Amino acid sequence: MSEARRPVVFVHGLWLHATSWGPWMELFSEAGYDPVAPGWPNEPATVAEARQSPELVANLSIEDATDGFRKVIDGLPASPVIIGHSFGGLITEKLLGEGYGVAGVAIDPAQIKGVLPLPFAQLRSALPALGNPANLHRAVSLTAKEFRYGFGNALPEAESDELYEKWAIPSPARPIFQAAAANFVMHSQAKVNTANSTRGPLLLISGAEDHTAPAVVTQSTLKQYRDSTAVTELRAFEGRGHSLAIDHGWREVADAVLGWLKEQGL
């Protein structure tokens, strides 16, 4: 009887569709894992459908999305590795802190409660959502120019535009408002149980040129785990922006994750 394959749950962030994990799914399947990449609750199955019906995801909160992935994990045959990008990274941290998953990888994770740095680049990247208070209950789309600043700033413009056309979708603005206000809200949905010492290992990944989740923010995130004895590590990729999980250099990041999982015995 063949050995069961370890499930891997991929969690995307705002403004990208779940199918953007396609290359990672193929690689992890070849490496012996059983990967799934569910969308956020109510997310249509294709990029085209998501662009046509932004109202389906309007007003989704961090907790709404996290609960959707809890239900996915509860339905799996074994505890998975959880890998998230951007707000998917924040969700990965939340789930791991709650005891879900055997390990987590948070790539350019969104800001959790307790993280104080707020670089100008991060604020500017969030302006398409935060710039209008009425966006709180809406789904917001990025323009190609906004996508280039937030995701593709370390890429040639042509590649950034290509990624935008291929993967960009409208996303709920509410999680950005929640993360921005997290340090002023007692029971913020951006809070993570960083003190949990019984959780699985966590790898934080940052792109040194990231505008949306600047490296200084990820470094501050690492410090939030100082009261936990569980494995928590940070890996930085020089010259990489927020697109590092989907651009031409994605394989370097994915191979680093596979190597780290091997080190953890997973």
Rank of each mutant, 00 (worst) to 15 (best):
residue 155 L to M: 02
residue 155 L to Y: 05
residue 155 L to K: 01
residue 155 L to I: 01
residue 158 A to E: 15
residue 163 L to T: 09
residue 164 Y to Q: 06
residue 166 K to S: 09
residue 166 K to N: 08
residue 174 R to A: 04
residue 174 R to N: 03
residue 174 R to P: 04
residue 177 F to W: 06
residue 178 Q to P: 03
residue 178 Q to W: 01
residue 179 A to S: 15
residue 179 A to D: 08
residue 179 A to P: 08
residue 181 A to Y: 07
residue 181 A to L: 08
residue 181 A to F: 09
residue 182 A to M: 11
residue 185 V to G: 09
residue 188 S to D: 04
residue 190 A to T: 10
residue 190 A to Q: 13
residue 191 K to M: 10
residue 191 K to D: 14
residue 191 K to E: 15
residue 196 N to D: 15
residue 196 N to M: 12
residue 198 T to M: 14
residue 201 P to K: 09
residue 203 L to I: 13
residue 204 L to D: 05
residue 204 L to Y: 03
residue 205 I to V: 06
residue 205 I to Q: 03
residue 205 I to P: 05
residue 205 I to M: 05
residue 206 S to W: 08
residue 208 A to R: 13
residue 210 D to N: 00
residue 211 H to A: 02
residue 213 A to V: 13
residue 213 A to S: 15
residue 214 P to R: 14
residue 217 V to P: 10
residue 217 V to N: 11
residue 221 T to V: 07
residue 223 K to H: 04
residue 223 K to V: 03
residue 223 K to I: 00
residue 225 Y to K: 01
residue 225 Y to M: 02
residue 226 R to C: 05
residue 229 T to W: 06
residue 230 A to P: 06
residue 232 T to M: 11
residue 235 R to F: 09
residue 236 A to K: 12
residue 236 A to Y: 03
residue 236 A to I: 14
residue 239 G to N: 12
residue 239 G to Y: 08
residue 240 R to L: 00
residue 242 H to P: 03
residue 244 L to M: 15
residue 246 I to C: 06
residue 247 D to A: 10
residue 249 G to L: 00
residue 250 W to E: 14
residue 250 W to Q: 14
residue 251 R to G: 09
residue 254 A to G: 01
